[in-house]
């Protein structure tokens, strides 16, 4: 007997939590073949699974590697299901985030986690990578009409670059159109306030709630 929609959604969820980036493809295909709705499979299966993975990371049950592998399963599944979204059901006008590690710093493990978590939450991500020239944040934000500019750094020596980007956003005349989020181990709420960044969080899981609040999603 064919599996029920609920059973398959449960399987999709498990594939992500259990980091099964190959099995997830089969389950997605089975799900589509049975004629079930792609949007539900994404939201209640894949994305719910990734949210569980974030929770486990927050509880130190999962480590960086686990989160990376869960996200691989998530992306593998999304690739199959996304093309089958009905036009009116598409994920809506996704909010856009430009993210990167500021100039002078190449620590990118934390930034990558933040990117994964925001992507899971439905944000459209533009990743500039590490050691990103400060002007590049502004240029990209203009180019894609970003809702949020998110900056990461782990070095005290490069923190000041974040303030410079905010000034540059101002000079470019788009400061009132984007929200700015900052994070990384030396960053604090206080520092964020000082440079005039609206958003700060100490970890990737909270970053999602902060981002949603900034763009009025929750």
């Amino acid at each position: 007997m064919a599996a029920s929609k609920e059973e398959l959604i449960e399987k999709l969820y498990e594939c992500v939590v259990e980091m099964e980036d190959e099995d997830v493809v089969d389950v997605c295909n089975e799900y589509l073949d049975a004629g079930y709705n792609a949007y539900d499979g994404i939201m209640d299966g894949l994305v719910a699974g990734m949210n569980k993975a974030s929770e486990l990371y927050d509880e130190e049950e999962y480590f960086v590697t686990d989160v990376l592998l869960c996200s691989d399963a998530l992306y593998a599944g999304l690739e199959i299901l996304r093309p089958h979204l009905d036009a009116d059901e598409s994920m809506g006008e996704a909010k856009k985030v430009v993210i990167g590690v500021v100039e002078g710093d190449t620590h990118d493990i934390g930034k990558n986690l933040v990117k994964i978590m925001l992507e899971t939450a439905g944000f459209e991500m533009y990743d500039l990578g590490r050691d990103v020239p400060l002007d590049a944040f502004v240029e990209k934000a203009k180019e894609v009409d970003a809702d949020i500019v998110a900056m990461s750094t782990l070095m005290t020596t490069t923190m000041s670059g974040m303030g410079t980007v905010i000034e540059k956003l101002q000079e470019a005349g788009i400061r009132d159109r984007v929200k700015v989020m900052v994070g990384g181990s030396p960053i604090s709420r206080k520092f964020a306030d000082e440079i005039g960044a609206e958003g700060y969080s100490a970890n990737a899981v909270e970053a999602v709630a902060v981002a949603k609040e900034l763009v009025g999603l929750e």
Binding site: M19, V64, T65, L68, L69, D72, I109
Partner: peptide, 9 residues
């Protein structure tokens, strides 16, 4: 490093 971490598993 992200590839190293994944490959480790």
């Amino acid at each position: 490093v992200d590839k190293l971490l994944r490959a480790k598993r």
